[in-house]
Simulated assay, not measured.
Amino acid sequence: MLTINTDSGKSRGGNNDLQSSDQLDPQVIQEFREIYLQIAVKVQNLMSMGVAYTYDKLYNLGCEHPPLSYRIDLMVSYELRLCGYSKDDQVNILFHGPYIQSQMLHHHLSERGARHYIRQRLAIAPPVPLELGQAQATPTTAA
Rank of each mutant, 00 (worst) to 15 (best):
L46A: 09
L37W: 01
R71W: 10
H107G: 12
R112T: 13
Y53C: 00
A125I: 03
Q38T: 07
Y53P: 00
I118Y: 00
D22V: 10
R115H: 07
H65V: 04
Q44T: 04
T141I: 15
M104I: 15
P126D: 12
H106T: 09
L46I: 01
A135K: 04
E79I: 07
S102M: 05
R115G: 07
Y53H: 12
E79T: 10
M1N: 09
Y70A: 06
T140D: 02
G84T: 10
P126E: 12
N60Y: 05
P127E: 14
P98E: 09
M47R: 14
Q101V: 14
L68V: 13
M104N: 07
Y99E: 00
K57L: 07
Q103T: 10
L82W: 06
A114W: 01
N5L: 05
P129A: 14
C63W: 01
T6L: 12
G113T: 06
G113Y: 02
E131W: 08
A135C: 13
N5D: 15
Y36I: 03
V76E: 03
H96Q: 02
N60P: 00
P26R: 11
L2E: 02
L37T: 14
R119F: 09
L94T: 03
Q103L: 14
P26T: 12
V28F: 06
Y70T: 00
R121D: 06
P26E: 00
K57Y: 05
R121L: 12
A135W: 07
T6W: 04
Q103I: 09
Q30A: 15
G14A: 03
Y78Q: 11
Q120N: 15
P126M: 01
E131S: 12
G50W: 01
E79A: 15
E31F: 04
I35G: 00
G113A: 11
Q23M: 09
H108N: 13
K57I: 02
M75I: 00
G13L: 12
M47Y: 03
L130Q: 11
G62L: 01
D89K: 00
P66W: 12
Y55F: 13
R12Q: 10
Y99H: 15
Q44D: 14
P129S: 10
R121Y: 01
A40C: 09
S8D: 12
G9I: 05
G13M: 14
L122T: 05
E131N: 08
S86C: 11
A123T: 10
G97V: 06
P126C: 10
V41Y: 09
Q19N: 09
G50L: 10
Q120L: 08
L82Y: 07
T3R: 13
E111R: 15
I72C: 06
N16C: 05
R81K: 15
D73H: 14
L61D: 01
V43M: 08
T54W: 05
L24W: 03
H96R: 07
G14W: 04
Q101P: 06
V41T: 11
L74A: 02
G84F: 07
L74C: 04
R112V: 10
P26Y: 09
I124P: 06
L58D: 00
A143F: 02
